[in-house]
Every structure is written in structure tokens, then in C-alpha cells.
Design a protein around this nucleic acid. Structure first.
Lengths: 196, 196
DNA sequence: TAATATTATTAATATTGTTAATTTATGAGA
DNA sequence: TCTCATAAATTAACAATATTAATAATATTA
């Protein structure tokens, strides 16, 4: 990295961090050039020297948030033994993370990529993230229980879809549900898949 | 209805129809007072004589779209016999409807409630709509196969969540998936739940 | 140090929601 | 039919937003 690149990264970081705070706090809707600029101590027009547009800035937060989510899950799951317990624990942490920061869920799954301006990869990885987190556990579960690859695939997909359906319903409108009732239902579904 | 009320309903209809066209065509994002007004031949400010604000107008479209969706499904499912076939067919039509009009899915499930409206009732019915459409078929399936109510409940919920998870993934970013691959996967999941 | 290139800011344009002010249409009573 | 009060519709205006153009400030380099 040349000196200019270092400065470039640093400037982008100022704006990204400001945008991240806003997303965590009040959601994507409050991320405006003016808000981000104020929070980072620069003029709103300066942002356009470092990002194509405001959506480019918003999506630049994705990778950071993914890392945060990953670390949160790993901190919660550490030391847990057994495939089923791991799947359950990882899922619970995953759900909990997005319930803590609904703005991040919004960014990951509700926001339209629109002009998927810059890096497509980080957007796509949103959809494999959950699979990646669970892959090892599902593998060991399948070999433990002698589940065929085809059946495992169905279970994995159905489970993943159910978890995200649940999050979609829960986060967008809170229908008297609590985090507990949500995780309980998902655990019930996991049990259904696993015990049989 | 008095004459005034009739006129009132008619005026609201002009705006609602214009907004519906926009949502069907390009999504909620293009529903602005100016766009709706232009399409309906009135001034943008006139809308405020008939709707509290844009959210109120957008909300008014929800009920219409629900009815359209219901009628579409019923037209597709007419004459189909057997619980399993009915569940599958209703689900396929449901998915197909939202794939035809991703803007409606967006309005129903992605848009934040505050954007849609302050009123609750019709929003909540979005979440029971799928259940309502399938309830009868699930009941007859359960009695055919002697499934316990508790187990039926788990299956119903898991299935519903998976369907909406699938729609969430499919509609928001198109990951090389087609309507066929989506319905096939959901059918596979349904089979998993039903065959045993 | 002076010229040049880079970076940041201010000004300006366009779009949006919403309300206020104003104009236009309507309908009841003389 | 005419008048005028009321309702309805429109234009004007304001505030917030994204974005770009023009300008000012700063840093680099010969």
C-alpha cells in the first residue's frame, strides 16, 4: 500500500464507522450523507471522493458487520460440544445478533442491492454466511446419524430458510413475539429435523 | 353511502389504482405523491384531501393486493383434489404471485410497517394470510395421516417460514435461481414434511 | 518558492413529503 | 338565475435528501 492508499483506507474507515454506528443505532434509513458527514467531522460532499454514492457506503459496512456477527457467534458457542448443541447454539446466537441490531438484518436481507455497484462478493456471501457457520456441525451430525447427503441437503436448506423466515417476521413487525419465543420455535423445528 | 361518500371512494380509488400500478411495475420505491398524482390526473396536493399521508395511501393498496393474491391462488387451485396436492398448488401459486409482482412482496414483507401505515389490523393479516389459505388442507392432511396437533403445528410453522425465507432470498437478490428451482426446492421440503 | 495536483468545502440542482395560500368549482338559498 | 359560503383542487413554499459543479484549501514537487 502506498501512502495515498493508506490515507484512502483511513478516510473510508471514518465514513464507514460513522455509517455503522447509525445503522446499529437507528437503521439504514438514517444513513444520509449529511448524518455520516456530521458524525465523521467532514463535509457531506467529501464522501463522494471515497464512495460512488451513499449506497456504496452503506454496502461497504456489510463485511465489517459479517465479521462482527461471526465473532459474536464464536464467542457464544465456544466450548460447546456435540453437533446438535452446536447447531442450536450457533443459530440462537445468529438470531440474537440480528435482534440486537435489526438495522444490520435490514441491511443484509431487506435492502435492495439495486446497482450492486462495487463488490458483488460480499453481498453474495451474506447468503452463504449461515451455511458456512453451520457446515461443520451439519457434516458431523450427518455422519453420526448416517443421514444421506440428499436428505441432509433438504434439512439444511429447510432449516436455513425457516430461520430467515422467522427473522423476517420477527424483526420487521414485532407480533407480540419475544426473542425467547422465536428461538424456542426454531429449536422446535431443529428438533423435528434432527429427531426422526 | 351518501353522494359525498361515493365521490370520496371514487377519488381514493383513482389514487389507489395509480399507486398499485406503480407498485406492480417498479416497486414501492417509485410511489411518490407526484408520481401517483401524475398518473391519476390530479395534483399531488389533492392526495392529502383523501389520505393522511403517502403511507396511508400505500397502506390502502395492501388490502387490494391481498384480495388479488387470494383470487389468483383460487383460480389456479380450482378443481385440484387431495390435501397434499392442494398444499403444493396453493404454495406454488402464492410464490408465483409474488414473483410476478416482487413490488407487492416488498410492500407486504420488506417495507417497514411505519412506511405502510400506523393502522395495525390489515398489516397483521399479511402474516396470517398464508396460514389461512392452507388451513383447510393442513387439517385434512392431519386427519388423513393421523398427525398429532402438536406435530402438525411444527410442520405448518416450519413450512410457512421456509416459504417466506425462500421468497426473501429469491426476490431480493436473484442468485441465478429461477421460479422453477424455487418451487422445486419448496416442493422437496413439503415432501420431506409429508412423506413418512 | 511557485506551479501543479489533490482534497475538501460551498453552492447549486433535482427529487421528495408536506403544509399554506390561493384559486376554482359546487350547491343551497334568495 | 344569481350570490356567496363551502368544499375541492391547485400552485407556492419549505424542509430534507442525493448528487454534481465550482471553488477554496492544502499538499506535493520541480
Amino acid at each position: 500500500m502506498t501512502r495515498n492508499e493508506i490515507q484512502d483506507v483511513r478516510m473510508r474507515r471514518y465514513f464507514i464507522d460513522a455509517a455503522k454506528e447509525l445503522i446499529k443505532g437507528e437503521g439504514v434509513v438514517v444513513v444520509s450523507t449529511r448524518n455520516v458527514a456530521e458524525r465523521s467531522g467532514y463535509s457531506y460532499a467529501t464522501i463522494y471522493n471515497y464512495f460512488k454514492d451513499v449506497r456504496d457506503l452503506i454496502f461497504a459496512c456489510v463485511e465489517d458487520f459479517q465479521q462482527e456477527c461471526k465473532e459474536y457467534i464464536e464467542s457464544q458457542v465456544k466450548g460447546i460440544k456435540g453437533a446438535k448443541k452446536n447447531i442450536s447454539s450457533i443459530t440462537n446466537s445468529y438470531i440474537k445478533f440480528f435482534c440486537m441490531y435489526p438495522g444490520i438484518f435490514e441491511l443484509f436481507f431487506l435492502e435492495k442491492p439495486k446497482v450492486i455497484s462495487t463488490r458483488k462478493s460480499s453481498i453474495e456471501s451474506i447468503y452463504t454466511f449461515f451455511d458456512d457457520m453451520l457446515d461443520e456441525s451439519w457434516q458431523s451430525f450427518a455422519s453420526e446419524k448416517k443421514i444421506s447427503p440428499l436428505r441432509l441437503e433438504t434439512i439444511k436448506q429447510a432449516y436455513k430458510l425457516a430461520v430467515h423466515g422467522e427473522l423476517l417476521f420477527f424483526i420487521n413487525r414485532r407480533n407480540n413475539e419475544t426473542l425467547e419465543s422465536v428461538t424456542k420455535r426454531i429449536d422446535g423445528i431443529l428438533n423435528y429435523f434432527i429427531k426422526r
